[in-house]
Design a protein around this nucleic acid. Structure first.
Lengths: 237, 237
DNA sequence: GGCGTGATTGATTGATCAATCAAACATTCA
DNA sequence: TGAATGTTTGATTGATCAATCAATCACGCC
């Protein structure tokens, strides 16, 4: 029964953190909704932050099985997988009435860098996400332009997803999400046909865009190095 | 002095809501940091939510002068303006050590639809943002493909910005932001050259991507109709 | 000088916050 | 049967929460 209780707590906490944020969720409410007494909750999670960490660790565990693998199972086509993944988020938005998108995105913006352990977990979550999509894009091989930075494109996909989810939640409508994803689709299809034409006129000149942004294309994948603030004083804007 | 006090409160509140979120910020802390007594704060803002609304109204007021207009002033080129705008956000990330990006994005994810007035304000903020960028894109005229949905592209730009800011904050690095924006740049440059070629072979066949997604291109701009949740029960994921 | 009005003060409210604790309970193995 | 370990109970802690209140202050107008 111990496992059940712990899981029940994590279920409720995950949902509430997702809907109301971390600071906006009271421990007492989690207890009540999970049918658990306060001492019992603190038996498994010695602090509220530990509870948040538990929730994030579970999100990280389930990222593969319940999200990436599902998208991968939807189709063999690596490009199709990208949009299958986006469609999972779309479906989650839909069934929740545009209330819940990515469970980690909220927390990412909320906790900032106040809690290092939490930030690291979220950073890891995004990294796994991006790496998986990058893997798919690499599988696409020469269907995509040779010089294209697969990791940067994967980052774009994640950015579009998070930003689109944000707007869909605010607008309480799937339209912003669909619009953004449709544009992403246009971009990737453009890349596909660009690579197709490039294959014919092999060794031909690189596209204007590729020339212009050669310096940002296919850079080495260095670990993200935290930057420190250098602002002397804060000014409103 | 009255105006000063109110502005001082709004300054502090805006900053703290941005950094720690709404629920994560205590009114007492705002009072202390603003050098104001509790009664004085509640004289101007009858509730914490009223304070949040005041902050958002000011963000909305300043969206034009301190953000859109600045980007528009940077260059006459409508496409250049888009990236000038993104660069403003990049600069804000940089000077804050990747702690602060869009002051509204956080609140958008946090409050959800609990407070209707707040949601409406945030929705309005995003709408103004998107409409302005759409205006620029329209100014670009036939430099962009004729069938391209300018509003959807503007939505994409906002999505990329918000999503990229989220990742930059989590990673404490500008790299994710730069990668995502670089990809967006590639897309838009592709659109530009696509329109350029299209101009030559005028009346030629539409691109494969445009054919595939014709149904999502240039749809009428309908107001966002809130969707209601239809989920019978929530399940963890 | 007296009056009115809005701004300011700061103590105080009850509620809720995260967290603690000793005691009771359940389960397992000796 | 009984000790041991792990789990659950629920009252309780002090701190902090948003919000209220009567009282005082500064300042313009008649």
């Amino acid at each position: 029964m111990a496992v059940d209780t712990k899981d029940r707590i994590l279920d409720v906490a995950a949902r509430m953190f997702h809907e109301q944020g971390f600071a906006g969720t009271g421990v007492a409410t989690i207890q009540r909704r999970a049918g658990v007494n306060s001492g019992s909750l603190y038996h498994f999670f010695p602090s509220k932050e530990a509870l948040l960490i538990g929730v994030l660790e579970r999100h990280l565990e389930q990222l593969g099985p319940s999200l990436l693998d599902r998208a991968a199972a939807a189709t063999e086509d690596p490009i199709g997988r990208v949009f299958a993944l986006l469609d999972v988020y779309r479906e989650r938005l839909r069934i929740s009435g545009c209330a819940r998108g990515c469970p980690v995105g909220n927390l990412a913006l909320e906790v900032g860098d106040a809690k290092p352990r939490v930030r690291a977990l979220i950073d890891g979550y995004f990294s796994v996400w991006v790496d998986e999509v990058r893997g798919w894009l690499r599988t696409a091989g020469d269907r995509l332009p040779a010089g294209l930075d697969r990791r940067a494109l994967a980052r774009l996909v994640l950015s579009v997803m998070e930003g689109a989810v944000m707007q869909a939640r605010t607008a309480k409508s799937l339209e912003p999400f669909d619009e953004a994803v449709a544009q992403l689709h246009l971009y990737i299809d453009g890349l596909l046909s660009q690579a197709q034409h490039g294959a014919k006129e092999r060794e031909g000149e690189r596209s204007r865009a590729a020339r212009l942004y050669a310096h940002v294309v296919e850079r080495p994948s260095v670990p993200t190095e935290p930057v420190e603030a250098d602002e002397p004083e804060w000014r409103a804007w």
